[in-house]
Design a protein around this nucleic acid. Structure first.
Lengths: 335, 335
DNA sequence: CTGAAAGCGCTTACAG
DNA sequence: CTGAAAGCGCTTACAG
């Protein structure tokens, strides 16, 4: 199968087909669609034989450093890929940064035969990057986006509101009333959902949420958990419980307590979020909100493949269930 | 870089270079060698073949579950790959288990265009698997093998003996004498090296290592650290310090101490191994032996590519330096 | 065993 | 937005 044959079938010139393959912008959408359809039909193009037979998906991380949480994601997508016979290539911000040259990045992925991109980023990908992927018709699925993307973006997330609600409801059921919320990024959609879930449970129980008990660390890392956790514990009276919006932040709060000579859970209850492996390894083991990472990976991969096959998907955004996991970092308050 | 340039450098025609690339028989061995040399020198892959143009390496994990430590490995190999333009495919024991059908697995990798396999496993890969890789001429590099592989296997590891020595020497310098060793897998080469490094420092200082202070958890996970750590702390007199051979085991020892009402580092010093992100997230942050994960990933990838290019490698096994990192889980013993 | 020459598949600068 | 034409990189049948 050659360019010339596709060009003939499509009734266009070889030059035009070449442009479509290379993702050049100067081709009418209608022409582009017709050519891509024929390429797919003839098994050609970004879908050359070799690449077709050994399909790959790009799992892209928009972070400088991968965290503990990302291990779980990699594992879940790799496992889901294994079931479908799709190899998972891990990409990361770095030497071949999509931000530096979105078009080159997208063309590279298309040429290398990636079926789709699954992206894990703090924000949604920038619109030049999304446009570049669009131009080479590379489907994109956001996995656990921190911000709620608009309708034009397909994404898979977790039920953050319910998670926040469950954490607060559990602490309330233990008898806590003075409960602090320690968030990561204030304006992220996921943070807002968790915070409002928290508030909603507190309000339903008639418990106040004074402003000094709501704070944001700006990141989800332990170092900031220590810092902001310390600040919360310095309040008078201090909270009897802290709900942190990641396991790492929660681990930081445990360390902040230790530095002040407080014991968890005797003097302070702590609840995390995500249920990464870290939660089983802190001392004491963390009560936390289990995030559906494995399920998210599987759904993201399936959705990505559906998009790649031009199948209809049910919804541009789905949220999978979170669940409270009680371990040993929580206990009724003293007295 | 084009065929024409290589042809010019080699003083032959473009046609001849083309034949060499395509493995045609009608080229003199001398001419062939000269051309191949130049191709390597100029990093020319031949882009007729899609798989050649978008090279991949398989990063294979022989574990049921990926641990925190493995995130670091993935990150280091992906980064090293990005620098060389090599995509890293993550593979794992699971649906397409190499153990189930080594030949099919190896052929699949070869067909999919993998340049080499970098394997992270508890033991060296089984000999049927190694034989199968050999048969398709797929180079194999073991990354941080727990057992010392024989000469026929290429591997990159860490200086475990020095690491064990440094941990013991540091605890001794703080004044500890009754120091326990908590290993992972007893008969693994890495464990033996760490244990003997530990012993060597103890002996040099004239400190005894009674048999009850040396124990093996069988795994490197926190759960077993809690269990065996608890046993060590139940001795009378208990040790004043524990050197655990992974950060997770060390985290388990911290938890075992908490359960007995002991504080780290006031009542017990704990040293870990690896310096995974976990070490900065425990409470208190762990004093540990930094493992050269980033460097190992880079060296493993470079070595794998050298093997793939039929280049000579310096040594079938190299060990990269470990280093003591002092945080807050260690302190002189009481009195 | 080697290379000149024809030719294939693809890309691109440019005219319309 | 499209395509004719020039041209690039590579392969191959064939003459020597």
């Amino acid at each position: 199968m050659t360019l010339a044959k596709i060009a003939e079938s499509a009734g266009v010139s070889v030059a035009t087909v070449s442009k479509v393959i290379n993702g050049r912008p100067d081709v009418a959408q209608q022409t582009r669609d017709k050519v891509l359809d024929l390429m797919r039909q003839y098994n050609y193009g970004g879908y050359r034989d070799d690449l077709r037979a050994y399909p790959t998906v790009e799992l892209f991380f928009g972070f400088e450093r991968l965290s503990i949480y990302h291990t779980e994601i990699i594992q879940s997508v790799v496992d889901a890929g294994a079931r479908e016979g799709i190899a998972v290539v891990v990409g990361r911000r770095g030497d071949h940064d999509p931000a530096a040259d979105p078009a080159a990045w997208a063309r590279g992925l298309a040429a290398a035969g990636r079926r789709a991109v699954i992206a894990v980023t703090a924000n949604t990908l920038s619109s030049p990057i999304r446009a570049a992927l669009d131009r080479v018709r590379m489907p994109l699925v956001l996995l656990d986006p921190e911000s709620l993307p608009d309708n034009s973006i397909v994404s898979v997330g977790a039920t953050n509101f319910s998670g926040g609600h469950a954490a607060a409801a559990y602490l309330l059921s233990l008898g806590h009333r003075r409960i602090a919320y320690l968030g990561g990024t204030e304006h992220a959609g996921s943070n807002q959902a968790r915070l409002h879930g928290f508030r909603s449970a507190m309000e339903a129980a008639g418990a106040r949420v004074p402003t000094e008990l709501v704070c944001h660390a700006g990141t989800f890392h332990a170092a900031e958990g220590i810092e902001h956790g310390g600040r919360l514990l310095a309040l008078s009276p201090p909270p009897t419980a802290v709900f942190a919006s990641s396991d790492e932040l929660a681990a930081g709060v445990i360390e902040a307590a230790r530095r002040r000579g407080l014991r968890v859970p005797e003097d302070l209850s702590v609840v995390g979020f995500d249920d990464t492996p870290l939660a089983q390894v802190t001392s004491p083991p963390l009560t936390t909100i289990h995030g559906p990472v494995r399920e998210m990976g599987a759904v993201a991969l399936r959705t990505a493949l559906q998009l790649a096959a031009d199948e209809k998907i049910d919804s541009h955004h789905v949220e999978l269930a979170t669940q409270l996991v009680v371990r040993e970092s929580t206990r009724p308050p003293r007295d």
